[in-house]
Amino acid sequence: MIEVRKLRKAYGGGALAQTVLHDVDLSVRSGEVLMLVGPSGSGKTTLLSILGCVLTPSGGSVQLAGHELMGVPEASLPMMRLRYIGFIFQSHNLLPSLSALDNVRLPLLLRGWSSGRATAESTELLESVGLRDKLVCLPSQLSGGQAQRVAIARALAGRPPIILADEPTAALDAHTGQGVMETLTRLAHEGGHTVVVVTHDNRIFKFGDRIVRIEDGRITEDTAHANA
C-alpha cells in the first residue's frame, strides 16, 4: 500500500540545506498498523507529512496505492489526499463551527458525495465510534476523547485506504488514549485500512502490527509485533 524508496527531504538549499530524511526505505502492507516512533526532531512528522501528500519529497520514490508521488504537480495533491488519505491530528482539529456529524460529512462532501449519502455514512461511522448520541454536538461540547473519536470517524469517512495519525493520544489522558487507540485499530482492522501512527507514547505501541523507529532522519529499527 505504501512503498518508500531512498526518500530524501531537505529544507533550504545550497550550503544551508538541512536534510531531515536520509534515504528512507519503508514498506507498509495493506491493512497493516504501523507505529512510527522516535525522539523529537527525528523526522517522523516530516515522513508522515510526505506520506500525507502535504509535503513534497526532495528525492527518492513514494508510492501510495501504486501511485508515484514524485513529480505529481502540487495542484493534484489535494485530490491525492481526498482519494487515498484520512488524517487524525494531535489536537483533533475539528472545525469548531460544525457539529460532530458535519465534521465527518465534510470530507465526503468534498469528495462529491450527495448530502444524504454523506449523512448516512457519517452517522454510521459515528455510531461505530460510540458517538451516536453526539451527532449534533459541537466540538466544544465534547470531551477530548470524544472529539478524537469524531476525528477518527472523519479520517475513516469515504474509506480511504491509508490513515495517517499524528500523536493521536498526545492530548489525552492514559485511559482515554487507550480507548481511542482501541477504537482506531479495531475500525482499521475491520475496514482493512493501512494505518501509520506517529507517537511518543510507548503505552500505545502495543496497538501496532509493526513498530518503526526513526532517528536523525534514518530508520534505525523495524520490529514486527509478536502477534501480527
Partner: peptide, 26 residues
C-alpha cells in the same frame, strides 16, 4: 536499519485478516 525485537505488551485487540480497501472514486 536493524530489525530488533522490542518488548511490547500485547494489545487486547482482535486482529482480523486485512481486507482489500479500494479507493472510492471521487
Amino acid at each position: 536499519m536493524s530489525t530488533t525485537a522490542l518488548q511490547i505488551e500485547v494489545a487486547p485487540v482482535e486482529r482480523t485478516s486485512p481486507k482489500k480497501v479500494v479507493a472510492q472514486p471521487i
